[in-house]
């Protein structure tokens, strides 16, 4: 499969300082890709280089195989983005804002504007001035302007910033839907690991302007995990597990048993417990192990 967005050995120097070192990554159609890193790691700088707001010192960014530096207009027409906050013209209505951006791209019809407005659920307020909008509504309007020209890459910088939990969930579901159904390549940045896990298929961890690693969320969760079995009675369950496989690492906690186990083995262990008459109230894969790895990878520095 050909990647839609490619970063090849991208480097950014500001003055004598190197902000981004040799960053390479590929993003494919249909996936949500995350840029994860502490504040100041270079996520926003990377995004700014992708969309052409900042120059690239060396290396290149390709959108559908077209270089952003060499043929900006051709490359950028496939990109929709919100860089940092969705700033709009506050003295214009939401609709006028969209008309403004629609005029800057070929082929965005009035029908398309209305379609996008419905898509982000702003149809009741679209003719109000943006200054009367809440932050959530501005986010929606920002999303609308990014989707207007049917881009193949959607780039969102900290998309859940300032949203309430319902809003975060909504945008998360929406981005996944765009990737699955419309085959968009979605790039999001965040400094929150939990958010990345819930939203992304893969994510790159960036620290001090360097790519630490690219992780696949599925892979990660399919590796050996710490799993919490909420069971009753705990002691009996612990004995059962020990008898079943003496090599497993078991720990008794308040709610039940914490077992370090391969992801694929979870159902079998559960079946065994049930068969032995243990009451299983819940099974939780503890994201904590992921968090621990993240801390490990970023050397535990300045995560938030």
């Amino acid at each position: 499969m050909k990647p839609i967005l490619q970063l090849k050995h991208v480097r950014k120097d500001i003055g004598k300082k190197t902000i981004i070192h040799d960053l390479s990554l590929d993003v494919f159609a249909g996936e949500v890709f995350g840029l994860l890193g502490p504040n100041g790691a270079g996520k926003t700088t990377t995004i700014r280089m992708i969309v052409g707001l900042m120059g690239i010192t060396s290396g290149e960014v390709l959108v559908n195989g077209v270089s952003v530096t060499r043929d900006f207009e051709k490359a950028i027409q496939h990109v929709g983005a919100i860089v940092e906050n969705p700033e709009m013209y506050k003295f214009l209505t939401g609709y006028q804002n969209l008309v403004h951006y629609a005029r800057m791209t070929k082929g965005v019809t009035k029908e398309r504007i209305e379609e996008v407005v419905r898509l982000v659920g702003l149809e009741h307020r679209i003719h109000d001035k943006v200054k009367t909008y809440s932050l959530g509504m501005r986010q929606r309007l920002g999303l609308a302007q990014a989707l207007l020209h049917r881009p193949s890459v959607l780039i969102l910088d900290e998309p859940t910033n300032g949203l309430d939990p319902a809003g975060i969930r909504e945008i998360r579901d929406y981005l996944r839907k765009l990737a699955r159904e419309e085959r968009l390549a979605v790039v999001v940045s965040s400094h929150l690991l939990a958010e990345m896990e819930m939203m992304c298929d893969r994510f790159a961890i960036i620290q001090h302007g360097k790519l630490v690693t690219i992780e696949s969320v599925q892979e990660l969760s399919q590796q050996t995990e710490k799993v919490l079995f909420i069971v009753e009675p705990k002691e009996k369950a612990a004995q059962m597990v020990k008898a079943h496989d003496p090599h497993l690492d078991i720990r008794l906690v308040d709610q039940g048993l914490e077992v370090t186990i391969d992801y694929k083995d979870i159902p079998r262990l559960n079946a065994m417990l049930v068969a032995e008459g243990i009451n299983v109230y819940g099974i939780h894969v503890l994201a904590k192990s992921l968090e621990e790895r993240f801390l490990e990878m970023t050397e535990g520095n300045e995560i938030v």
């Binding site: 052409g52 207009e73 013209y89 951006y101 800057m104």
Partner: peptide, 14 residues
């Protein structure tokens, strides 16, 4: 100052 420059310059217009 409005921050809209970031929206303006990421369009297919030089």
């Amino acid at each position: 100052s409005w921050g809209t420059i970031k929206m303006l310059l990421i369009r297919p217009a030089s």
